[in-house]
Simulated assay, not measured.
Amino acid sequence: MAAARITAGSTPDDHIDETRFPDVKTTLNLFGIHRRTVGGDWSYPLHEHPQYEINYLLKGRQSMMVNGIAYEQQAGDLLLLRPGDVHASRSGDGEPFEYFCMHFDVDDRLFLSLLGRMEQVLFPASSAMTLKIMPVLHKMLEFASEADSRSVAFRMRLQSAVFELFGQLWDAISDETLQPAQSYGKVELAHEIASRLRSTASQTFSQEGTNEHRTGLREIAGGLGISVSYCNRVFSEVYGMPPRAYWSELLLHESKQLLADARYSIQAIAAILGYKDIAHFSRQFKRWTGLSPSDYRKGIERRDG
Rank of each mutant, 00 (worst) to 15 (best):
A2K: 08
D171I: 01
W170V: 04
F163K: 03
G223F: 03
L46I: 14
G240T: 02
T200F: 01
Y71I: 11
P83D: 11
D13S: 15
A262F: 04
L273F: 07
Q51H: 15
R61D: 12
L141N: 04
Q179P: 09
R5E: 13
E219C: 01
A70T: 15
R198L: 09
H47M: 10
D85E: 07
S229P: 00
A125C: 04
L81G: 13
A245H: 10
D261W: 03
L30H: 13
D17W: 06
D14F: 06
D14P: 08
Q159R: 03
Q284A: 08
M140L: 14
F143S: 10
S236E: 13
S89A: 15
R117F: 01
N211P: 04
S91R: 07
L273Y: 06
F143N: 02
A161G: 11
L258Q: 12
L80V: 15
N55L: 14
E192I: 11
G216H: 04
K186E: 11
R214C: 00
Q182S: 11
N67I: 10
E72R: 11
R20Q: 10
A190N: 05
N67W: 05
A270D: 01
F154E: 00
V162K: 02
W288Q: 08
P242C: 00
F281G: 08
A172R: 04
F143W: 00
E164Q: 06
L81T: 15
Y275M: 05
Q179Y: 06
P180Y: 02
E208P: 06
A128N: 02
D93N: 15
N232K: 02
D277I: 04
K286V: 08
N67D: 09
R198V: 12
H213D: 08
N29L: 13
C101L: 12
T215D: 01
R244I: 01
P83Q: 09
L58R: 10
L259E: 03
V121D: 06
V38Q: 07
H280I: 10
P243W: 00
D107F: 04
G9R: 04
S236R: 07
G299F: 05
F100N: 13
R155C: 05
R150A: 12
R196L: 07
N232W: 00
D108M: 05
R302H: 11
S151P: 09
Q159N: 13
L78K: 03
H280E: 11
D17C: 07
Y44V: 15
A161N: 08
D171F: 03
V106H: 04
F31T: 15
Y230C: 09
L78Q: 02
P124R: 02
L141I: 15
P243Y: 01
S236W: 00
L224N: 01
G222Y: 03
S43T: 14
S63D: 12
I33S: 15
S149F: 03
F281V: 12
G76C: 06
A2E: 11
S195Y: 05
I16P: 06
Q73F: 06
A3R: 05
S255G: 08
H213K: 07
P293W: 03
S227Q: 00
Y56I: 12
Y56G: 09
S126F: 01
I220H: 01
G240N: 09
E142H: 06
Y246M: 07
L141D: 05
G60P: 02
F104W: 10
P135D: 01
S206A: 15
T11G: 06
H47C: 11
V187M: 09
